[in-house]
Write a protein that binds this DNA or RNA. Sequence first.
DNA 1: AGCAAAAGTTTCCAAAAGGAAACATTATTT
DNA 2: AAATAATGTTTCCTTTTGGAAACTTTTGCT
Lengths: 208, 208
Amino acid sequence: MTDQQQQDIYPSMTITSDQHEQKIAPIKLGERLKQIRRTLGLTLEEASQKTGLARSTLSKIENEQISPTFQAMQKLTSGLQIDIPQLFAAPKQVSTTGRRDITRNELGKPHPTSTYEHELLATQLTNKKMMPFKSLIRARSFDAYADWIRHDGEEFLLVLSGEITFFSEYYEPVNLSEGDSVYYDANMGHMLISVSEEDASILWVTAS
Amino acid sequence: MTDQQQQDIYPSMTITSDQHEQKIAPIKLGERLKQIRRTLGLTLEEASQKTGLARSTLSKIENEQISPTFQAMQKLTSGLQIDIPQLFAAPKQVSTTGRRDITRNELGKPHPTSTYEHELLATQLTNKKMMPFKSLIRARSFDAYADWIRHDGEEFLLVLSGEITFFSEYYEPVNLSEGDSVYYDANMGHMLISVSEEDASILWVTAS
DNA sequence: AGCAAAAGTTTCCAAAAGGAAACATTATTT
DNA sequence: AAATAATGTTTCCTTTTGGAAACTTTTGCT
């Protein structure tokens, strides 16, 4: 590995949501797949038998002539006993893959809603185990969601500033001040509001 | 559709090619996707704009009427800022075991060393996916570790106060100020010091 | 309630993927 | 090197996907 670490991290994915135009991260699925198949010492015919996909189809996928369907990918991954992350992992693996992404304060990409403003962090790295973001919770933001938020995974939350109330399905509400944190199962209904006069700032990290 | 969602759409397809017989996990991509979209608070139209896929297509994918192509999936994941593995994560759950742990500021369990002071958070919960802690890095803490820190998993770091320099094996050192964050592969050698006159306070979250 | 707007689904057709078999290339044997 | 076998690619055709617009359902409002 010389000096192209910069590249290893999935490069240039530009999304222009206005006009439906996007450049997609150039993951070379076909190349990757051929590499894996070769590593396993399989011919196309053998791979075909293991996956149930036609030899021709495999060839076309490897040569990037077609884009396999989800079903095909399932057959691929289960047939060859590889897992999806492996397919999408950066091609370089042998030595420790240096991946890094810095998010400067206030320079993230905010997703504003009426009561929250979510700012995703480390958006340049895909395939992460954790998904960190900062949120601003507007002062006195009641009614916002009348309903529980519930999703897979676990969540860690730290109050950066302000004061919030953390509601959850199986517990009494708690007030959290700056520096306080909660760790919880996100399948448990949860929701939070700002109770003070000022907006509250929160750090979340989710992992599934 | 009444109650047979469990089974239907990816009907645990069994590949019977000659010798190898396999069951493909019936990952319900559509359901998963709908869940994610809902979690993000997006309508089909909004998701359509973010991903560049037609509203109708999204609908059909969510209802498992079609199996999206790889291209479509790339648009999905990059447009909605989600990881591909996230999509494939096991159906999971129902466990809804409410687990929760609150750590009050300054009330954690500090582990002091000469240059750091680590305070583990959420210590009452075992078996967590993430391991959060706060650290205090003493001012002008040089030489401390002359060597890289390296371990499995990924790490997320946010500067709560002060200013530090983040050293890593494959990159130039960077200065991080309050609010800045880094996400990196912890296998890559890393290390940090406080550069200002005051101690710096950091939040870390690790996941393996 | 009834109406209007928004969200979601289905239809229809063009575009793309998957498979069988022909074709081409590479490896192996003599 | 020629012949043969094995591996990989392309062609041709059928099945499936993806998108625009029509249609249906749900949500919000007066």
